[in-house]
């Protein structure tokens, strides 16, 4: 970019009132699609299981009710035990979203915490924190999740903790480098000279400026966590008492639904994962783009 253009770019910005992030997000084509996807899926996940008449766990009465193709009663047919697939799909949406979001919250708290501490205190704190972060960045996540889930046993809480505890390193790195640069801005030495404590500076001078970055990153992490939950459940390490899209695919796989050509059983949960992950990815990338246009080349 030439200096002339840059000067004009600045002029452009000065004459416009900055719109809010959400307005920008809605104005971005990918962001808008992402928001629509997430709203639809959330509505389905929250209200779907209340409305749909079948109990996802209710087993069919006899062998004639298993692997039934879609019908007017069972929109997505039945599974290997004669259970209604559509009600499992709705319930699965709930668990997949719940695990993805809860695990992300854990990851964000750990990642942002470590990142802020490392960036703010620098020195040995930084070295130690980044050593641990790099270690977890290099250790292959899925094998470690499998090992942890296999050791600690299987229930929803453990799945959430295992995923969350391994999804934070990237957040930590991004937050750290942003904190490092924020710390050099003028308002930090000024606040310090006015006698503000470290805790106060972090709370009032650092964290507010990190929020947009953390939100964008968090949304992207949700996508990864939902995929992780699906994979873990597919391998058979999910909570056996909960239906998620991943566990549906696990049972579909081991019960031979693929070999039987029971597409109504293994297509919907996969599409569900695809659409939700895509929704979070679109919103996250778009958010990153509109809040920090310089960070990425944009699309």
């Amino acid at each position: 970019m030439t200096s002339d253009q840059a000067a004009q770019g600045i002029d452009d910005i000065e004459y416009e009132k900055p719109p809010s992030n959400w307005t920008l997000l809605w104005g971005d084509r990918m962001g808008r699609w992402g928001i629509i996807i997430l709203v639809v899926v959330t509505v389905l996940a929250v209200f779907g299981p209340m409305i749909w008449p079948f109990d996802p766990a209710a087993v069919g009465e006899d062998s004639s009710s298993i692997f039934q193709p879609p019908s007017s009663a069972h929109w997505l047919g039945t599974d290997e035990l004669g259970r209604d697939v559509f009600s499992q799909f709705l319930m699965g949406a709930r668990i997949s979203l719940f695990v993805g979001i809860m695990a992300t919250l854990i990851a964000t708290v750990i990642g942002a915490g470590i990142g802020v501490m490392a960036g703010f205190f620098r020195g040995p704190v930084d070295s130690a924190a980044m050593g641990v972060t790099d270690f977890f960045l290099v250790v292959p996540a899925l094998p470690l999740m499998i090992a942890l889930a296999a050791i600690f046993g299987q229930n929803l809480l453990i799945v959430i903790i295992v995923i969350g505890a391994l999804a934070w390193p990237r957040t930590a790195r991004i937050v750290r480098s942003q904190t490092l640069s924020l710390r050099e801005r003028q308002f930090v030495p000024r606040a310090r000279s006015l006698g503000a404590s470290n805790a106060r500076i972090i709370r009032t001078n650092i964290t507010p400026h990190l929020l947009a970055l953390i939100v964008a990153n968090t949304i992207l992490v949700v996508a990864g966590c939902i995929l992780a939950e699906a994979t873990l459940s597919f391998i058979g390490l999910g909570d056996p008492n909960r239906i998620s899209w991943g566990s549906m695919l696990h049972f579909g796989f081991v019960s031979g639904a693929v070999g039987r050509g029971a597409w109504w059983y293994f297509l919907p949960p996969g599409l569900g994962i695809l659409v939700v992950v895509l929704g979070f990815t679109l919103v996250g990338q778009s958010f990153e783009r509109v809040t920090n246009p310089k960070m990425r080349g944009g699309a």
């Binding site: 699906a230 994979t231 693929v258 949960p269 996969g270 990815t281």
Partner: peptide, 13 residues
């Protein structure tokens, strides 16, 4: 982005 959002095991299935 769409392909990236696919669960690998499901593509295999």
């Amino acid at each position: 982005l769409i392909f990236w959002s696919l669960p690998t095991f499901w593509v295999g299935m």
